[in-house]
Amino acid sequence: MHYIEGLSQAEIAKRTGLSHPMVNRLVKEGHERGYVRIEVKSPRQDLFELEQALAEASGLTEAMVVPTASDQDSVNLQAAGRSVADHILTVLRDGDTICVSGGVGVSAVIQAMEPTRAYDVTVVPATGGVQGKHFVDVNHLAAQLASKLQGRAFQIHAPIFAASRAERDVLMSLQSVGEVLDRARAARIALVGIGSVLSESSTYFSLHAPGAGGLDGLRQSRAAGELIAHLIDADGHLCDYPLNERVVALSPEELRTIPMTIGIAAGAHKAEPIAGILRGGYLDILATDEATGTHVLDILKRPT
């Protein structure tokens, strides 16, 4: 009567002369005895299964996969950015510190964020800055995010790459730089982009790092991707590459210790970088689109 005829429990009680509590008990007993089984068929079931498979294959706490709605990576990145923005607003608490990297992925999250109240939070850079890339520079993005949340932002007055390892050590020892990076280390949430390094669309060289062997040097380093300006190989390890010793930023190991590290990327050229970074265990949450996530899962299933 309840499941096949669609009658309410009150209607069943009236028709049978049983009490409403008795009908409720019988319906419940039908579940307990296995007479009734409920299946949920969602139009997004494939996405849920992909999210679960990515998490199981990589050790992620959560994967957030949006439909691939366009052949333009920027459109899919915007959709992934909205999912991250919504998630951050769900988990964000007053008193939190958020550290961010630069890049178009982080920018997509910030642009999509629509808070409904002010948050007493602090936003800090996780890396040094980049001259001439204002709209994706870490200082600009930290300020934008803090403005949207009505919190406060700190700026880092140092380049993302030093000219030498010795200069990097000097910059990292400066009180103004050290205080910002200490705040980043103490963050509860990190929001970072995932960079490609060998594709034509790679932004790694746009960081204007002073020479380190160019594209040939990158190939020899066996770099798969970039995370907070550090090159990571396909197995998730730091590459033996000169610029990795000259980065003014948190290290990937320090990033890993932040309680909730969210990475965002979309596009076929980001699949290999994502897979390498997932193998390194640097992220807790990954946001991407379905086509990219499927490619990443295929890579993760390959023997290394």
Rank of each mutant, 00 (worst) to 15 (best):
H2W: 06
Y3N: 02
Y3K: 03
L7T: 00
E11H: 00
I12C: 05
A13W: 08
A13K: 01
A13Y: 06
H20C: 00
M22V: 14
N24M: 09
K28G: 15
H31C: 07
G34L: 04
G34K: 04
G34Q: 06
R37A: 10
V40F: 15
V40E: 14
R44P: 00
D46W: 11
E56M: 01
G59P: 05
L60S: 06
L60M: 06
T61D: 13
A63Q: 07
M64L: 15
M64Y: 08
V65R: 01
T68Y: 11
T68A: 04
D71S: 02
Q72P: 00
S74L: 05
V75D: 10
N76S: 08
L77V: 03
Q78F: 14
A80E: 04
A85L: 01
D86A: 07
H87W: 11
G95L: 07
I98E: 05
S101N: 05
G102N: 07
S107L: 09
Q111L: 05
E114Q: 15
T116C: 00
V121R: 06
T122A: 13
V123A: 10
T127N: 03
G128E: 11
G129N: 14
V138Q: 02
H140E: 10
L141G: 11
A142G: 03
Q144S: 15
L149H: 12
A153L: 07
E167Y: 08
L171Q: 08
L174T: 03
L174W: 14
V177S: 02
V177R: 01
E179F: 08
D182F: 06
D182P: 00
L191T: 02
G195A: 02
S201H: 07
S202A: 13
Y204V: 14
F205C: 01
S206G: 06
H208M: 09
A209V: 13
P210K: 11
L215Q: 13
D216N: 10
R219W: 08
L227V: 09
I228A: 05
I228S: 03
H230M: 10
I232A: 00
D235I: 06
G236L: 06
H237N: 09
L238V: 14
L238D: 09
C239L: 08
C239I: 13
D240K: 10
Y241P: 01
N244T: 14
A249C: 02
L250Q: 03
L250A: 12
P252Y: 14
P252H: 15
E254S: 12
R256I: 13
R256P: 09
I262P: 00
G263D: 08
G263V: 02
I264D: 03
A266D: 08
G267D: 11
A275W: 09
A275E: 03
I277K: 02
G280W: 15
D289F: 13
D289P: 11
T292D: 00
T292S: 02
H295W: 09
D298E: 15
L300I: 10
K301M: 13
P303C: 05
